[in-house]
Amino acid sequence: MHLDAIDLRNFYARRIGLMVRRLLRPRFRAFWPDVEGLRVFGLGYASPYLAEFRTQALCTGALAPVRLGALPWPERAASHTALVDETELPLDDEAADRILLVHMLEWSEHPHALLREIWRVLAPNGRILVAVPNRRGLWARMDSTPFGYGSPFSRSQLTRLLKDAMFQPESWHYVLHLPPFNWRLLTRWPDFWERAGDLLWPAFSGVIVVEATKQVYAGALAREPARRMRRRVIPVPAGAVTPRLTREQKDRLFAEEILRR
């Protein structure tokens, strides 16, 4: 089960959602302090956090999966939002320098295929920033916030998934240490409670944030064996007489055709 874009918009309009945005945005920005001239995309429901990069990046875009739905972003300008298939992103190879995944990986039905598609569109020196619910945290156990839906991750599970998709985890951070309650006592001083939780129960944070880099390996071009190649049909002008060829002559011509490709 997962929420849709309307549910997420409503959550971030509430007091607890504003608190979550206030705590996560500077952490994301700290990972990528300089995006001058870079192409930055958000995948999932990342629009509450893309504004941090919009004025500096060369271009920004919010990619929303079909199952989630899309809302225009930014609200008072030309929309930079696109509704996409998570395993067939409408981007060319190596078209992105930075990709932010929020409210995405834990809801994906094909997480490995999703990450491999991200690998395809990411530049060789590109980076991804992934935010997922922490399996050990209280936020993943309560459905009063979006982090209580989908499949939460532990650090080891997330590491294995990223490495299987040819990403190398580089930096980790744990966010949302305060309880997931819409109490004024918490939402009024979130920074204080966040620091307290970071000291007292750091392993039970609500969200795990990891930055990973794309792994690129050198390799030889794989060629399909000649026996598996299809014979090409060569057109012959109408009325032309084609000589009868022996089997050996046909095989020789076919081999020459293969060598000419």
Rank of each mutant, 00 (worst) to 15 (best):
1 M>I: 00
156 S>Y: 11
125 N>K: 15
164 D>Q: 14
124 P>L: 05
241 V>F: 06
223 R>S: 08
75 E>F: 02
63 L>S: 00
96 A>I: 13
92 D>G: 15
32 W>N: 10
201 W>K: 10
56 Q>M: 05
168 Q>L: 15
191 D>L: 08
102 V>E: 13
143 D>W: 00
139 W>M: 01
159 T>H: 14
162 L>F: 15
198 D>A: 15
235 P>D: 03
222 A>M: 08
132 V>I: 06
195 R>F: 04
145 T>K: 01
46 A>Q: 05
247 R>S: 12
131 A>L: 08
37 G>P: 04
4 D>H: 05
229 M>D: 10
128 I>W: 05
199 L>W: 15
119 W>G: 09
119 W>S: 09
16 I>D: 02
88 E>L: 15
144 S>L: 04
243 P>V: 07
201 W>E: 08
248 E>V: 12
146 P>C: 01
119 W>H: 13
164 D>V: 05
13 A>S: 06
87 T>G: 04
215 Q>W: 06
25 R>E: 14
186 L>Q: 02
120 R>C: 01
67 R>F: 13
185 L>F: 02
17 G>A: 00
216 V>P: 06
227 R>F: 14
246 T>R: 10
230 R>W: 10
113 A>K: 06
178 L>V: 02
253 L>V: 07
41 F>P: 09
9 R>T: 07
78 A>R: 14
66 V>G: 13
242 T>W: 06
55 T>W: 05
166 M>P: 02
41 F>D: 11
118 I>V: 11
25 R>M: 10
25 R>D: 12
79 S>D: 09
233 V>Y: 06
